[in-house]
Amino acid sequence: MAVLKTEELTYIYSEGSPFQKTALDHVNLEINEGEIIGIIGHTGSGKSTLIQHFNGLLKPSGGRILLDGRDIWADKSDIREVRFQVGLVFQYPEYQIFEETVYNDIAFGCRNMGLSESEIKSRVAETAVDIGLSEDLLESSPFELSGGQKRRVAIAGVMAMRPKVLILDEPTAGLDPVGRDRIFQHIVKYHEKTHNTVLIVSHSMEDMARIANKILVMNRSKVFCYDETEKVFARAEEITQIGLDVPQITKVFAELKKHGLDFGKEVYTVDYARELLLKHLRERGIFNA
């Protein structure tokens, strides 16, 4: 069943003023439980506006958002409960850290939920392990940590609330490749463990191809396409036409196809490409190993 669903969701910024701008234009989506969905699109395509609707930070100008089949705006006083169920990690979340210790900052969301201290303690400890923060860091000041560590503290703060849907807006922006890989690894692990829905906004097609099982492409305030990862990257040409990228390896295989080497399958991860190529070379007897 769809955990999140939008019906004709429309959002207009500064409605009625000369600066009026439609940021979301009749968006219809269904997000199923347990999926990892990658959201891609240009700056200003409506990605950030869309995810801020999922947890009720923005109120739609038109249409509805359903969480477990219930309109999240049906009762305004329930909106805080919605925010606990749909956890949103903003871009550069380390800038929202304010507590004296890492422990307290991770616990902030849980405290707002009104959980007992013992429950909070076990959640913080568990989340810290999940996100790869060692226990001795918990009592140190978050402002003494490295950039990557701070980022993980901020993400942990939302994860500890155990939301049904976890949304991350560019969780790896500004990190080095090692820090980036680490964050994605931890997100995948978190998903394997909890089977909760995860939505990730990202610019890195490689990473999305690796971890997402569905891709949502936003273009000009509309859903351009929303499908399983391979089916989306099968439309590589259209995606390039709207100015977005596809994984490098997909481009290589598209080029090979032009030169007459057609595998008949969409290739979007390096591992899969390696497998296909090795098989091909073995069949032709060129490579024996």
Binding site: L57, R80, G87, V89, F90, P93, F108, M113, G157, V158
Partner: peptide
């Protein structure tokens, strides 16, 4: 932005 981020954590 900060207000939104803290609201997202239930503040």
């Amino acid at each position: 932005r900060i207000i939104s981020a803290q609201k997202a954590r239930g503040a």
